[in-house]
Design a protein around this nucleic acid. Structure first.
Length: 270
DNA sequence: ATTGACTCCTGATGGC
DNA sequence: TGCCATCAGGAGTCAA
């Protein structure tokens, strides 16, 4: 999926067209997503978009009364259409504005979500237990170090857990751990405060740079204009199994950790 | 409480 | 060309 940088890229791409505009119609063409799309989403019709925000990998559409939550899942994308286009396969829903602009959601794997929230959009249960935003001041080495105390799970799984920190998915977890020189399988509780400081810096740095490049497109991520992200060419280890480590010249390895492919340099990462 | 396995689904890819 | 296995960026849920 879209990880934090891809969701942020999507947000920045669609926000200018949505903020302050009035929603004319919500059309659900195929409600089969991660959870069936509720009829309630049509409560958005006639309402003005007060604000568009991101929380972790969730896009939040705050309306005058209630709001919408959109998650891109693994293969979802949102496109802004300036003129009408024939819906294609996997185009699950449209949010049409009074000014004629249309936001169209496509998701082949159907792991995405489109939900209605009564009341404040942040109050939804899905968002209740999320950890801090990695680009906020709440995300510190001290916080990570304390939270990891005594925990034996692999550091990669630890930082990919949304209750620990949001937005770090499989690609950027591998990248940040390489940058910080930490082996992805190291027990989270066996990493010093100092090394956590390096990891926090690495996570912030890789996410910020990826946002600047419009995200990573391995196969299907496209932004609101339908263009891919360019961070793919900046990846240091992800998807580079067998390639040379840019730091030591050794061989990049691929290993399944917690059911997900992980990439790392066994020499540089301990 | 913490952890790991399983699950949802379609599509791309590679081997034979 | 077809068939089959494998893999894919997420994350909720369940069982141990």
């Amino acid at each position: 999926m879209p990880e934090l940088p891809e969701v942020e890229t999507t947000l920045r791409g669609i926000a200018p067209y949505l903020q302050g505009q009035r929603i004319a119609r919500v059309t659900v063409r195929d409600p089969r997503l991660r959870w069936p799309v509720p009829e309630d989403v049509r409560k958005a019709e006639g309402q003005r978009v007060v604000q568009l925000r991101r929380r972790g990998k969730y896009l939040l559409v705050e309306l005058e009364q209630g709001g919408l939550i959109i998650h891109l899942g693994m293969s979802g994308s949102l496109r802004v259409l300036h003129q009408s286009r024939t819906p294609e396969k996997h185009d699950h829903f449209d949010i049409e504005l009074e000014n004629g602009t249309c936001l169209r959601f496509n998701d082949p794997r159907r792991f995405g979500a489109f939900l209605w929230v009564d009341g404040p959009v942040d109050a939804h249960e899905l968002l209740r237990h999320l950890g801090p935003e990695p680009l906020s001041d709440d995300f510190t080495a001290r916080y990570l170090h304390r939270l990891s105390h005594g925990r034996k799970l692999a550091i990669k799984n630890f930082i990919m857990n949304g209750q620990v920190v949001v937005g770090v998915g499989n690609i950027y977890a591998s990248e940040a751990l390489f940058m910080a020189g930490i082996h992805p399988q190291r027990a989270a509780g066996r990493i010093s405060a100092q090394r956590y400081a390096g990891l926090v810096d690495a996570i912030r740095d890789v996410l910020n740079r990826a946002i600047k490049m419009g995200g990573t497109s391995l196969r299907d991520f496209v932004n609101a204009d339908g263009a891919p992200g360019y961070f793919t060419q900046e990846l240091l280890v992800y998807n580079r199994a067998g390639g040379d480590c840019f730091q030591c010249g050794g061989r990049i390895r691929q290993k399944v950790i917690g059911q997900r492919s992980s990439y790392y340099c066994p020499v540089c990462q301990r």
